[in-house]
C-alpha cells in the first residue's frame, strides 16, 4: 500500500526534495558568508533591529512541495476513477480513505521534519535562542499551512460536484492570501508578533479544509459520475 501511494509521486518527490535541499544549502551558505563578513553578533543585531533575514523562499518552496504532492496523490486516484478500486480494498471506507490521505501527508511531514532539524542546526549555531523561537514559530506556521494546502487539494480534486470543487478552490486561494498576510517573510513583518493569532485563523481554515475533504470523499462515494 505504501508503495502504491509513493509511486504516485515518486519522481516529483525526489525532484522537490533536491530543490528544497538546494534552497537549504543556499540559505546555509548565505548565513555563513554573513557571519564571515560581519560576525555572529552583528548578524544577530541586524536581525533584531533591521529584520535582516529571509528564508530565501524556502517557506514558499515548502508550500509548493505539499501542494504538488497532494495534486499527484489525488489526481492519480481520480484518473479512470481509480478511487473506486482503492475504496474496494477489504477495509472500512474510512480506513481506505485515511490511508490515501495520510500516506502522502506522512511523506510531506518527513521532509518538513528533517528540514526543521537541519535549519535548527544551521541557524541555531548563529542566532540567539529568542530569535530561533521566532524563526521556528514562523516555520511551524508554514508547515501547518503546507498540510492544509495538501488537504485543500483533496477538496477540489476528489470532489465530483463541480460547483463545490470551484468554491473549495477559491477558498484555498483566499487562504493563501490570508497566510501571506499573517506570515510573510521575516523582513516583511510589521512586528515579530504579527502572527500571534495566526494559528486561530488557520484553525478555522483547517476546519473548512477537513470538512471539504470529508464531504468530497462522501460525495464521490455517493455519486461517481464518469
Amino acid at each position: 500500500m505504501f508503495k502504491k501511494e509513493f509511486y504516485k509521486f515518486k519522481d516529483v518527490y525526489l525532484l522537490l526534495v533536491v530543490l528544497i535541499t538546494s534552497f537549504l544549502a543556499y540559505l546555509a551558505f548565505s548565513l555563513k558568508n554573513m557571519v564571515q563578513n560581519f560576525g555572529a553578533l552583528d548578524t544577530n543585531l541586524s536581525f533584531l533591529f533591521k529584520k535582516k533575514f529571509t528564508f530565501f523562499h524556502l517557506d514558499d518552496m515548502n508550500l509548493v512541495f505539499a501542494f504538488v504532492i497532494a495534486v499527484f496523490v489525488f489526481f492519480h486516484e481520480r484518473i479512470n476513477g481509480r478511487l473506486r478500486l482503492s475504496l474496494h480494498f477489504p477495509h472500512s471506507s474510512a480506513r481506505n480513505i485515511g490511508f490515501i490521505i495520510m500516506c502522502g501527508l506522512l511523506f510531506v511531514f518527513f521532509v518538513y521534519f528533517v528540514e526543521i532539524i537541519l535549519l535548527n542546526i544551521i541557524l541555531g549555531a548563529v542566532y540567539a535562542k529568542e530569535i530561533m523561537y521566532v524563526l521556528n514559530y514562523s516555520l511551524a506556521f508554514n508547515y501547518v499551512f503546507g498540510f492544509l494546502l495538501y488537504i485543500f487539494c483533496c477538496g477540489f480534486i476528489i470532489e465530483p460536484v463541480k460547483k463545490r470543487a470551484i468554491v473549495n478552490f477559491i477558498v484555498m486561494l483566499g487562504s493563501i492570501y490570508l497566510y501571506y498576510e499573517i506570515n510573510p517573510d521575516i523582513y516583511a513583518f510589521d512586528s515579530f508578533y504579527a502572527n500571534d493569532f495566526g494559528f486561530y485563523y488557520m484553525g478555522i481554515v483547517a476546519l473548512y479544509a477537513l470538512s471539504a475533504a470529508f464531504i468530497a470523499f462522501d460525495n464521490y462515494k455517493r455519486g461517481y459520475i464518469k
Partner: peptide
C-alpha cells in the same frame, strides 16, 4: 471489510494502478 474481500471487481476498461 469482510464482504468486500469476497467480491472480485473488474471495472470497464481494466482500471488499475497503471503506474505500478
Amino acid at each position: 471489510a469482510n464482504t468486500k474481500s469476497r467480491i472480485g471487481l473488474l471495472y470497464e476498461g481494466y482500471v488499475t494502478y497503471d503506474y505500478l
